[in-house]
Amino acid sequence: MDILDILRAALQQALGPQAIVFALAAIGLNIHFGYTGLLNFGQAGFVAVGAYGLAVSVVTFGAPFWLGITMAIVAPLVLAVILGVPTLRLRADYLAIVTIAAAEVLRFVFGSVEMKDTFGGSNGLNGYAGPFQDANPYSSGIDLGFISFGRNDLWSLTVGWVLVALCCLLVWALMRSPWGRVLRSIREDEDAVRSLGKNVFAYKMQALALGGVIGGLGGMFLALKQASVVPSDYSTLMTFYAFAALLLGGAGRVMGPVIGSVLFWFLIAGLGSFFSQSAGKGGWIPTVIMTDTQASVIRYIMLGLAIMLLMIFRPQGIIGDRREIAIDGR
């Protein structure tokens, strides 16, 4: 077993594009759930709409690249308004039901045969990311000895982490303001906020839209990085991974989702590498106990276990404050 190899795989993933996409999705969820108390179970829908907003406008409608980027921001905004108007006046559970359904509907529509001409069916869309790749200022990749990234990856990672940093900065600036105070108060008790003369519905809508747009940026980044969008990327699994990352890091904290996402992918890749080395030929775990194929999925079981233990012993996440956690299991 090569511990260095495990660490290398884990670090590569923890700093890689997946961590960026889920960090952005989780930053959005943090605004929804961590600060405002909105239960959005359809963040994957916002991410998908961001990605497709870019791809569809460039590939299907032949719009210029910059307009595609604009659409990647506008589309989640529109989705937030459509979902929010009927549901934000209702109790939090209804938003959860509507958002999870909406995200699934979107995924099926994007992948449907009937809409193949617009959304590209299950093969998705590609051929829109040229301007992004052309803008790459790096002439070569980077080799840090321990981990290395190719030229294209280096460019995407630069853009991605800058995007994450900007979003964190925005969230920090907003949440220290009176606006953020109103959001956190809505999380605690809507009626109290109403009784003090604040338009709760408008604030919830702003929060839903902002979190949705940041999730959409995650989709836009994924679309740029992969140079293709495929509907199967945006399943409910994406939402729940984002939630896992958020809870891991700490909801209601600016850096919580980022730390959570990095750690989440570090664990996923690290555990994956550990078990694939340990099981099968040459591994120390006999095949009677674990086969090769089992080794590739056992990490998800371990991760689920880790999140359960986290919820029991440290419900505030890694950097949360126990006195002001958004959820309390007990």
């Binding site: 925005l170 907003l174 220290r176 303001s177 009176p178 606006w179 953020g180 105070r181 003369g197």
Partner: peptide
């Protein structure tokens, strides 16, 4: 207590990021 005050400029979304 601060939440109670009315007419706060910082409660508007576009003004909020700028202290």
């Amino acid at each position: 207590m601060r939440l109670g005050a009315t007419g706060q400029k910082g409660e508007r979304f576009w003004a909020a990021p700028f202290k």
